[in-house]
Nucleic acid binder design. Structure first.
Lengths: 214, 214
DNA sequence: AGATTTTGACTGGCCTGTCAATCAAAATCA
DNA sequence: TGATTTTGATTGACAGGCCAGTCAAAATCT
């Protein structure tokens, strides 16, 4: 009803807006229908557009999926780096930031987790995953390993930094997988508590199940 | 050359043999081509049989996938229960057994891990997963939680058994996912060491990165 | 008017499931 | 034992349906 007065909903929108809209619809469709049943018609319908538009903006389905993964990867990278930057220079604060970053409401939604899981699970998308996320993952690994090394040294803990970092990383990954595959009664708080319990086991004077100890 | 003397390779085999053969081919195809590209023709070709046979033995593709998941689930359950049984009554030995069970060469192959991952990642297969694996997973969770509770009590550790159990479980899950999605330079030994490092963090007098301390 | 976006019908290809014909082994008969 | 029938596994061609990508026409914007 207010339709006429305010936004005439321009049929013709900027290229980037349409592309973003279609990518968002792709994420939703991947989550709802799964990789195998994600069709261009379904994506277009979810976006409220016609099927031909997808090919107009992305040429092929493969490119659409590639750009979708690219968006997820960039969003993920930007998120943890922002958390890390805000944490300052203290290793414990940095580690706490990294652990919480993956549960940020912008990143950790049912749809996005499911979409990630689609790309992990589908063998044919693994080369694509390596190409899009390999560098990001390597940067993340180097970063969390360095932070663990600093915290081990600073806190006088013993342990192999790379291995501690790996445990923390796979724990987060495992919690993510758990949040998707098990019933949806899994809250973000429980996920955070699980990861914090893991951190507390390695760094008992810096972490508890409730989070970082300042 | 000995062909004529011994096995003439019977064209006609027992129902169960063929079904097992086709299920094994399904696992390989899921791993190699992914869920979305797994076709009946591909499965039949991998098994060296004709495509019509798949429908003859399984009626529908859906039933073939269902029985494949069923086999994986049963195989997995039988494996950890056998490990647990052999471990006796000591909680530390029991936990060590559970941690090692998931790296048994019969269970932890590239093909089987990939197939599991296909079922996790494909949204459409999640109800099937719940139906086939829900009860098994619940039993596993209850079991590892009880063992953690016993070990916490026996060792005089402090901590929430359910949460410690969850961390260990998601760590194993995360390592599995890691072994599939990252480059294949991930050895079983490294996976075991990662899980053991996690156990050592919670139970330092019972575990080291090398495994259980007797 | 000219440029650009959007639509929806169309096509060619692939996939699942069906089915009639084939074939090998087992069972039965002479 | 040798011939014949029955059983049930196996094959490959086929039909129906769905999907990605194309394209000409329409709608919209500048």
């Amino acid at each position: 009803m207010t339709q006429v007065l305010q936004d005439p909903i321009p049929r013709k929108m900027s290229r980037d807006t349409r592309r973003a809209q279609l990518i968002e619809a792709t994420i939703e469709t991947l989550a709802l229908r799964g990789y195998a049943r994600t069709t261009l018609t379904e994506v277009a319908h979810t976006a409220g557009l016609s099927h031909g538009l997808v090919n107009f903006h992305f040429d092929t389905k493969e490119k659409l999926l590639s750009e979708t993964l690219s968006l997820l990867a960039e969003e993920y990278r930007a998120n943890w780096q922002a958390y890390l930057h805000r944490a300052g220079v203290d290793p414990a604060a940095q580690l706490a930031a990294l652990l919480l970053a993956d549960f940020d409401p912008a990143i950790c939604t049912q749809a996005r987790l499911s979409a990630w899981c689609s790309f992990w699970g589908e063998a044919q998308s693994r080369p694509l995953y390596q190409a899009q996320c390999g560098a990001n993952d390597a940067a993340y690994n180097a970063c969390i390993a360095q932070i663990c090394a600093d915290l081990l040294a600073q806190g006088g803990y013993s342990g192999d930094a790379a291995r501690v970092a790996r445990v923390l990383r796979v724990t987060i990954q495992g919690v993510w997988l758990d949040m998707i595959t098990t019933a949806p009664d899994y809250t973000i708080e429980e996920g955070q508590a699980t990861v914090h319990a893991c951190a507390a086991a390695f760094f008992p004077r810096h972490f508890s199940a409730a989070g970082v100890i300042l």
